[in-house]
Amino acid sequence: MRRNSPPALIFHGLFVVFMLAPLLIVCVVAFTPEGYLSLPTRGPSLRWFKAIFDYPEFIRAFRDSLWLAALSSTIAIMLAVPAALAIARYRFPGREAMTTLFMSPLMVPHVVLGIAFLRFFTQIGISGTFVGLVLSHIIVVIPFALRLVLAASYGIDRRIEHAAISLGAGTSTVFRRVTLPLILPGVVSGWLLAAINSFDEVTMTVFIASPATVTLPVRMFLYIQDNIDPLIAAVSACLIAMTAALLFALDRLFGLDRLFVGSGKG
């Protein structure tokens, strides 16, 4: 492996600064002791982190977002696993079209999905409900779940299942004892990626959220639309810290390149 040249490393350094600067500034500003946006030149203060607790709507939105992410990604993975197995191992009419359809929420602008769900949910009378949020998030996160389960399913040697069958295992036993354990890494990482994407989704959700059911990113977005103050920086800093912790955990567990690369299309 040849080394990178000094100019290349300078370029790389600038790039890293570019990527991290906006996240760092949020975290730094969150610690300001002042009542307005500024760097904490008088030393760090936790006053704005404490202030979050005076705004129960952020806490409630956070809790709703967690529930929404857990529910929608669980249902998405339950739909994705059988579909991925079918796509990975059978050649059947409509297979290509089906795969494109299941991956389409990646390519359809989320604004369009938001509008479509708003219209649809209004027509069937579930607009502004948590059920509506879950249904719409299932659609948005299925591609992530499907892609990782699909990659895991392609890797299975079908003869391992044949071996189990020859030893007397029935269809459900083969799935429970052999197939599922073999694709488990894909299922777990697919679920996680789906949950993260559900948790972060804002563009589509902003259309279908109602005052009663608002996710954290939407609550933050609406807040920023009105004004930008250290409070929102503190909320964002919490989010960034949580994501960083999750990221390190994921990297340890699965290896980030396994999660994201080789499945190029995002």
């Binding site: 949020v26 804002v202 990113p217 933050m220 990221l247 990297d251 994201f260």
Partner: peptide, 24 residues
């Protein structure tokens, strides 16, 4: 793998938080 975190990490942070950083 360390710098891959720098590339991928922001992807997992809410767009709202990232844009807030840029606004600041």
């Amino acid at each position: 793998s360390a710098f891959l975190l720098v590339v991928i990490g922001p992807l997992l942070v809410s767009v709202v938080a990232r844009t807030l950083g840029w606004a600041l």
